[in-house]
Amino acid sequence: MYKLLVSDLDETLVRADGSISPENAAAIKAVLARGIKFVPNTGRGFASVQKLLQAIGTYQQAGQYVISYNGGAVIENKDNQVLATGEMPYADAKQIFDLLADHPEVDIHVYTLNHLYIYNKRQDDLDYVASRGVEYIDMPDRDFTRFANKHIMKVIFMNPDITTRHAVAEEVKAALGDKVDLTYSSARYGEFNHHGVNKGSATLQLAERLGIKPDEIMAFGDNANDIPMLKVVGMPVSVSNGIDDVKQLAKYVTQANYETGVAEAIHHFILQDDK
């Protein structure tokens, strides 16, 4: 029996406009009514997830959780209490930022525990950020000392061209070595977290806190940053629009995409007797 469901958001659970379908919301509410935990596990900050939590019924609820920043923070929904963080050392974050800032073709996101800063804004990125209801602070210059006393969760960059994205990401990864982990998401981002911090490690950390075994967890994903999460759970699920690497790892691939794929899998494995 599955006791914990963890799900990526963008391109997995929510639609292009950032909303959740009635089918997905209803299926989640049904498993919550059975006492099963449903935890968004996202690269985004937890502040941007609050509207979704309202839609599924876990907003400001004690004993309900969000995993943010690709595993960089585990949050209890009641009062957004921070339970655990995996922040990035300032020197590493600054080195990543400085290398990325030498590339005018990318824009850069610096995530602190409570805010997102964007440097060298691209309109195509701002449009995507706005569609997700994400608020940001404009970073008008390269002075990274503004983060000297802040908790840095991750540093990411955006360019929609896959060749450019991979070339820039690999350059930075080569310079930082095993200090950081590199993943890709949403066909637009290269993401850097502190080494060992990912959606999978945070899932297991929360599960241990709740007394839940890995084989009692179901996870939903679509992209490369979901792979560490899918690797550590008993039932890894890919929505139909998932990339090939995710589909090959999944034990179940939905027929539906992000519109209703999560609901499809929930009904298949958990609510099959609710007909």
Rank of each mutant, 00 (worst) to 15 (best):
Met1Val: 10
Met1Tyr: 13
Tyr2Thr: 01
Leu5Met: 10
Val6Ala: 14
Ser7Gln: 13
Ser7His: 02
Ser7Asn: 03
Leu9Met: 15
Asp10Pro: 04
Thr12His: 07
Arg15Gln: 05
Arg15Trp: 03
Arg15Phe: 01
Ile20Asp: 09
Glu23Asn: 00
Asn24Lys: 03
Ala25Met: 10
Ala30Phe: 07
Ala33Phe: 08
Ala33Pro: 13
Ile36Leu: 04
Ile36Met: 05
Lys37Ser: 12
Phe38Glu: 07
Phe38Lys: 11
Gly43Val: 11
Gly43Asp: 10
Gly45Lys: 12
Ala47Gly: 12
Val49Ile: 15
Val49Phe: 08
Leu53Pro: 08
Tyr59Gly: 07
Gln60Ala: 11
Gln60Ser: 08
Ala62Gln: 12
Gly63Glu: 04
Gly63His: 05
Ser68Ile: 02
Val74Arg: 02
Glu76Ser: 00
Asn77Phe: 10
Asn77Tyr: 08
Asp79Phe: 00
Gln81Asp: 04
Ala84Ile: 03
Thr85Glu: 10
Thr85Asn: 14
Met88Val: 02
Tyr90Phe: 03
Lys94Arg: 11
Ile96Val: 07
Leu100Lys: 01
Ala101Lys: 11
His103Thr: 01
Ile108Cys: 13
Ile108Gln: 05
Leu113Met: 09
His115Ser: 13
Ile118Phe: 13
Tyr119Leu: 06
Arg122Leu: 09
Asp124Ile: 06
Asp124Phe: 14
Ala130Asp: 04
Val134Arg: 11
Glu135His: 07
Arg142Leu: 09
Phe144Arg: 11
Phe147Gln: 07
Ala148Tyr: 08
Ile152His: 13
Met153Asn: 04
Lys154Trp: 05
Val155Cys: 06
Met158Asp: 11
Pro160Lys: 15
Asp161Ser: 05
Ile162Met: 11
Ile162Thr: 04
Thr164Lys: 12
His166Tyr: 04
Ala167Asp: 14
Ala167Glu: 04
Val168Glu: 08
Ala169Thr: 00
Ala169Leu: 05
Val172Pro: 04
Lys173Thr: 02
Ala175Thr: 02
Ala175Asn: 02
Gly177Pro: 01
Gly177Val: 05
Asp178Phe: 08
Thr183Leu: 01
Thr183Lys: 01
Tyr184Lys: 09
Tyr184Phe: 07
Tyr184Asp: 00
Ser185Phe: 01
Arg188Pro: 01
Arg188His: 05
Glu191Trp: 12
Phe192Arg: 02
Phe192Asp: 00
Asn193Ile: 00
Asn198Cys: 12
Ser201Ile: 14
Thr203Ala: 08
Leu206Arg: 08
Ala207Cys: 12
Glu208Ala: 10
Glu208Phe: 15
Arg209Val: 12
Arg209Trp: 14
Leu210Met: 13
Lys213Asp: 03
Pro214Thr: 15
Asp215Gln: 13
Asp215Leu: 06
Ile217Val: 02
Ala219Arg: 11
Pro228Ala: 09
Leu230Met: 02
Lys231Ile: 06
Val233Glu: 00
Val233Cys: 05
Val233Trp: 05
Gly234Arg: 03
Met235Ile: 13
Ser238His: 04
Val239Cys: 14
Val239Arg: 06
Val239Tyr: 07
Ile243Leu: 10
Ile243Pro: 03
Asp245Lys: 14
Val246Asp: 02
Val246Trp: 00
Val246Ile: 03
Lys247Leu: 03
Gln248Tyr: 13
Leu249Thr: 03
Lys251Asp: 14
Tyr252Gly: 08
Thr254Asn: 14
Tyr258Pro: 00
Glu264Trp: 10
Glu264Ile: 06
Ile266Arg: 11
Ile266Val: 09
His267Asn: 07
His268Lys: 15
Phe269Val: 12
Leu271Met: 07
Asp274Asn: 15
